[in-house]
C-alpha cells in the first residue's frame, strides 16, 4: 500500500508500533538481562534494568553443574533427526501427489491432515506402554520416531504446496528439447524444489525443537531435550532466577534466530497453505 501519509501520523504510528513490540518482546529481553546478573541482583528490589555488574557466571555454572550439553545435543538430534527422516518419507509422496495427481490425491492429503488433529492424550497410554515394553522409553530413537510421525502431515503438506507451484510447462518444454527423465529431475526439478524443501526443513526443526508433550512424557535423564531439562527448574532449591534465565537463553537462542529467518514460511506452513 503505497499511500502517502503525513509525517506526523507516521511518527505517532511508529512510536505506537515500537511500544507494542517492546512490550511483547519484553519477557525475552528481561530473561536476557537477568541471565547476566548474579542471583542476588536478579531478585533485587527495585529491579536493576541495565546498571548491574554483568557476569557470565550463570552460563558457566549451568554448563558445569548440569549435563547441559547432553540435553542440547538431545534437542539437536531429535529435532534434526525427526525432520530429516520425515523429509525422506515425505518428499516422494509430496512429489508424486503434486506432479502425478490422481483422483484420490485430495482425499489422501485431507486424510493425512486429519491425523494431525488427533490430540496426543488420545494415544498417550498405548505409546507410553509400548515404549516401556520395547525399551524405547527415554531414548533419542523413540522420540525421533514419535516426532517424525506427528510432523509428517505438516511436512507432506508444506512440500506439496511448494511443489505444486513448479510449473508443469517447464517440464514439457524440457521434454521437447529432448531431456530424459534423469536430466529432468536433476537439472530442472531439483533446483526449483530446493527452496521449498529448505523452508520445510527449517519450520519443522523449530516445531520439533519446541515440542513439549511427548518430550516431557517419554524422557527422563538420558534423552531429555531442552524442553524437559528446563522443566526441571519448576521445583528448584534456593535462588535460581539468573541460572534459569541463562539456561532459557541458551535453549531459545538458536531457534529464535532460525525462526526469524522462517517468518514467511511460518504462515504458509502452519496454515497448510490456506493463507499465503
Amino acid at each position: 500500500m503505497a499511500r502517502r501519509v503525513s509525517t506526523r501520523r507516521r511518527v505517532i504510528v511508529t512510536a505506537l508500533a515500537w511500544a507494542m513490540a517492546f512490550l511483547i518482546f519484553f519477557p525475552i529481553l528481561w530473561t536476557f538481562l537477568t541471565s547476566f546478573k548474579t542471583e542476588g541482583e536478579a531478585v533485587a528490589t527495585p529491579p536493576h534494568f541495565l546498571f548491574f555488574n554483568w557476569t557470565l557466571e550463570n552460563y558457566i555454572e549451568v554448563n558445569e553443574r548440569s549435563d547441559y550439553f547432553l540435553h542440547f545435543m538431545n534437542s539437536v538430534v531429535i529435532s534434526v533427526g525427526s525432520t530429516v527422516l520425515g523429509l525422506i518419507i515425505a518428499i516422494p509422496a509430496a512429489w508424486s501427489m503434486a506432479f502425478v495427481p490422481g483422483k484420490r490425491t485430495k482425499d489422501v492429503l485431507m486424510w493425512m491432515l486429519s491425523t494431525k488433529m488427533l490430540p496426543p492424550v488420545g494415544v498417550l497410554i498405548p505409546i507410553f506402554l509400548l515404549f516401556k515394553n520395547t525399551g524405547l522409553m527415554d531414548t533419542r530413537t523413540g522420540l525421533v520416531i514419535i516426532l517424525t510421525l506427528i510432523n509428517l502431515p505438516i511436512i507432506v503438506w508444506m512440500l506439496y504446496t511448494y511443489f505444486k507451484e513448479i510449473p508443469g510447462e517447464i517440464l514439457e518444454a524440457a521434454r521437447m528439447d529432448g531431456a530424459g527423465l534423469r536430466e529432468e529431475v536433476i537439472h530442472i526439478l531439483t533446483p526449483m524444489a530446493v527452496p521449498g524443501i529448505a523452508s520445510t526443513l527449517l519450520l519443522n526443526v523449530i516445531l520439533a525443537w519446541n515440542e513439549a508433550f511427548w518430550t516431557l512424557n517419554l524422557t527422563a535423564a538420558n534423552a531429555a531435550p531442552l524442553t524437559a531439562f528446563i522443566a526441571s527448574y519448576s521445583s528448584p532449591e534456593g535462588l535460581f532466577y539468573a541460572k534459569l534465565s541463562a539456561a532459557s537463553m541458551m535453549a531459545i537462542a538458536p531457534i529464535l534466530i532460525l525462526g526469524w529467518f522462517s517468518q514467511k514460511q511460518l504462515v504458509r506452513g502452519l496454515t497448510f497453505g490456506a493463507v499465503k
Binding site: 519477557p27 525475552i28 516431557l216 534465565s245 532459557s248 525462526g259 526469524w260 517468518q263
Partner: peptide, 20 residues
C-alpha cells in the same frame, strides 16, 4: 520483535512468566 514469543519453547515461557 513481535513474532519472537512464538519461538520460545513452552516450558521456558511458562517458567519465565511464573517466576520472574
Amino acid at each position: 520483535l513481535v513474532i519472537a514469543p512464538f519461538f520460545v519453547m513452552p516450558t521456558v515461557s511458562a517458567l519465565v512468566w511464573k517466576n520472574m
